[in-house]
Amino acid sequence: MAAQSLDMQDVAMNGTRANPNSAFRRLLAVIRELLGNPSSGFGLVVITILVLTAIVAPLIAPYDPNVIDLGNTLKPPSAEQWFGTDELGRDIMSRIIYGTRISLTIITIVSVIVGPIGLLVGTTAGYFGGWYDTIMMRITDIFLSFPSLILSLAFVAALGAGLENAIIAIGLTTWPPIARLARAETLTFRGADYISASRMQGASSLRIIIKSIMPMCLPSVLVRITLSMATVILTAAGLGFLGLGAQPPLPEWGAMIATGRRYMLDNWWLVAFPGGAILLVSLAFNLLGDGLRDALDPKQR
């Protein structure tokens, strides 16, 4: 009997809960708003193309990115090889296409690490206040006081060169601004009546932070992460350029520029195309971030 009534309760809850649908509709509305604005529309389109390229890279890349063809080195852009070949005869266009996978991996892993850490540090510091807040914010200050590229350089130097370590280093330098933002947002909500109400209903601090405060911080944190993706791409390219990020055979854009640097004066296509790709993608993330801020932030409406 009890089990049956529980079942009925489940059915009743699922039957009346139309949330997934409405969330989907809200997502569509946000996408429509992003496309309505030329600059954020451009950002969204470029990033969609980036993601699709990364997924279908083997299908659309005309050549193998790692096959060396010494009889065909430093060829300028032509009908067969649109972006030309590099000093080892590898097709630059194929390398850029495969490079999207590396960039996307870095971006995804960094945001998966950075978002939760920033949110957790920021919301707890803002909610609890006192000495906990002081300690957390001083740690954040220490991280913020270094330029992010210098700090990631230090981390990579300590951890050793390589893509994984570059990702960890970039993650370590990207969370502080997010923590700051989440704390500032939390401070504006912590005195709200709905927080007092849920405290009076017996909600624990953890419950209040997760259920009431984090959802309020999420939109601005999301915008902030999107905007910092541009910096992440630049830092990753910078580390690659300095030889501390992705290691040689990997077609990472920064590393491609680094090797192309030696031939730059006579063979411009070695650096122009990877450089253009970095420029385009970081610009797209910046524009998308701005557009997202307009679409998600209720305060600007």
Binding site: A192, D193, Y194, S196, A197, S198, M200, S212, M216
Partner: peptide, 16 residues
């Protein structure tokens, strides 16, 4: 004990 607050616009969580 429970409490009803003054401002109905601030006492309900806007995203819940």
């Amino acid at each position: 004990v429970q409490m009803v607050f003054q401002d109905p616009y601030g006492s309900l969580h806007p995203r819940q």
